[in-house]
Structures are given as C-alpha cells and as structure tokens.
C-alpha cells in the first residue's frame, strides 16, 4: 500500500505523462485481449474504400456509347468506364493464363475495348448475373467477354493503392503507436520515480524500491483493465498475459539500467 501511495503521488505530480501512461497501459491490455475483433474491424474499414466491379472485353467495332448509357441506368450499377484498346494489353495477357496462348494470338491480332462496370456494395449474386446477362444481350454474346466480379481489396492491391496497403497493416500500426506511447510515458516517469525511490532507500532500510513502486503501480492499472476486458468479452488467451509480462520485463530492465 505504501508503494502504491507513493506511485500515485508521483503520478499526481506528473498529470499529463501519468494520463498517457495509464491510458496506454489500459489500451495495451485491451488490444491484446481483443486483437481478433480489432483486426476484423480494421479489415472491414479497408474494404469500404473500393467498389466491386467486373470488366467486359468488347470488339473494337461495337459502338459502346449507347451500351454505357444503358448500363448506367441499371439499378445496382454505380459507374461505367471505357478504356481504349492500347491500355488493355495488360489485361489481355492475364487472359492468356486462363484461355491459353492460341487464343491470345487471336486476341492480340484483333482490337478490343474494355468496359469497367462498378456495382453497388453487397449486391446479390442473382442481380450481378442479371446485369452481366443484360450486357451480353446488349452487345451480343459473340462480341463480348465478361470477367468475374472482383473484390475491392484485390482491386486496390492490384492498383498499388498505398492507403489500402497501409490499412491492411492497421493492427501493427496500432500496436506500434500504443507501445511507443507506453514507452515514452514510461521513460518520462522513470526520473521522478527513481528520485522518489532513491530518497526512500536513503532514509529507509529497504532496497529495490523503484521496482516495487513501479511493479505495484503497474499491477494496479493492468489487473483492473484485464478484469474489465474479461467481463466484457469472456475468454482466456495467452496474448494479454504475454503483453503484461513484457511490460513487467521492461520495467524490471529499466530499474536495472537507469541510474539513480
């Protein structure tokens, strides 16, 4: 109790740092307990960025303006884009893998246009099929090749969208930020705690007061945080214990390394 009171006094004298330390400690425990849920939430956020779409390769002779206009008016279609024949060579190469080199030769010898049809999020498979069938009917089955529906995540990664790549690593950024905040606040708290423990050791017959104070103080933060997390989402996992042990290890290391 004595060490806890001293720890709280030091926190009271360093309010801002103490706030960051307590919040980041609680957050580390919460994130390590709910890491699966957080990972799922972050991945959902990343998929919202793009629209699901499919491509259609159309013979160069077909007039696509009216097709585009009609497709745009369809319910469930968000947007329609046309791409010139030169730009689709890359796309044709990918078709080689699916249909073989013989077909590729024929494809390269002829000219094509690409129509990209963007669909609404969560559109049912039945409706997607209807839209594809409508497109085939408009152009004629012989003159059009319709591709599969692509998911937004794949779209973004294929396009090299940096935001998508960054958000796919979201949990690690979160962990890094929390760990950074915790370490910075720890470093800022070490000096006043070290002074306090030094004075204690000078006037009381006790040793290792820094670790005792910090240990008791940290326990008083992370144990209630862990209990609250377990009460909210009951499960037993090793990761929160590993996180808490790491925190303790760092405090122990600090108490050994930092001079009074």
């Amino acid at each position: 109790m004595f060490y806890l009171v001293e720890f709280l006094k030091v926190l009271k004298e360093n309010v801002i740092v103490a706030f960051i330390f307590v919040m980041s400690s609680v957050a580390v425990v919460s994130v390590s307990h709910n890491y699966k849920g957080i990972e799922a939430k972050l991945s959902n956020v990343s998929t919202k960025n793009g629209q699901p779409y499919f491509n259609a390769l159309v013979s160069d002779g077909v007039r696509v303006d009216s097709v585009v206009r009609r497709m745009k008016s369809l319910p469930g279609v968000v947007g329609v884009e046309t791409v010139k024949s030169l730009a689709i060579k890359k796309e044709v190469k990918t078709l080689e893998k699916i249909y073989g080199t013989d077909l590729l030769k024929n494809l390269v010898s002829s000219k094509y246009k690409k129509i990209k049809i963007e669909l609404k999020h969560g559109l049912k498979l039945k409706n997607q099929t209807l839209i594809k069938e409508y497109l085939q009917r408009l152009i004629g089955k012989e003159s059009v090749t319709v591709g599969n529906l692509k998911t937004p995540q794949k779209v973004k990664l294929e396009k090299g969208n940096i935001i998508q790549i960054i958000t796919s690593w979201g949990k690690w950024y979160l962990v890094s930020i929390l760990a950074g905040l915790w370490l910075i606040s720890l470093a800022l708290l070490v000096k006043p705690l070290k002074k306090s423990s030094y004075i204690m050791e000078k006037f009381q017959r006790s040793n290792h007061n820094f670790f005792k104070m910090f240990g008791v103080g940290l326990l008083s933060i992370i144990i209630p945080a862990y209990i609250a997390n377990v009460a909210y989402a009951p499960k037993v996992d090793l990761i929160p214990f590993a996180a808490m042990l790491t925190m303790f290890g760092i405090v122990l290391l600090t108490s050994a390394l930092v001079k009074k």
């Binding site: 004075i199 204690m200 006037f203 009381q204 017959r205 006790s206």
Partner: peptide
C-alpha cells in the same frame, strides 16, 4: 515522512 520505516 520519507523517513518512516516500519521496522524502526
């Protein structure tokens, strides 16, 4: 009070 030692 920093000098308060319960052993003394």
């Amino acid at each position: 009070w920093f000098s308060y030692d319960r052993s003394l």
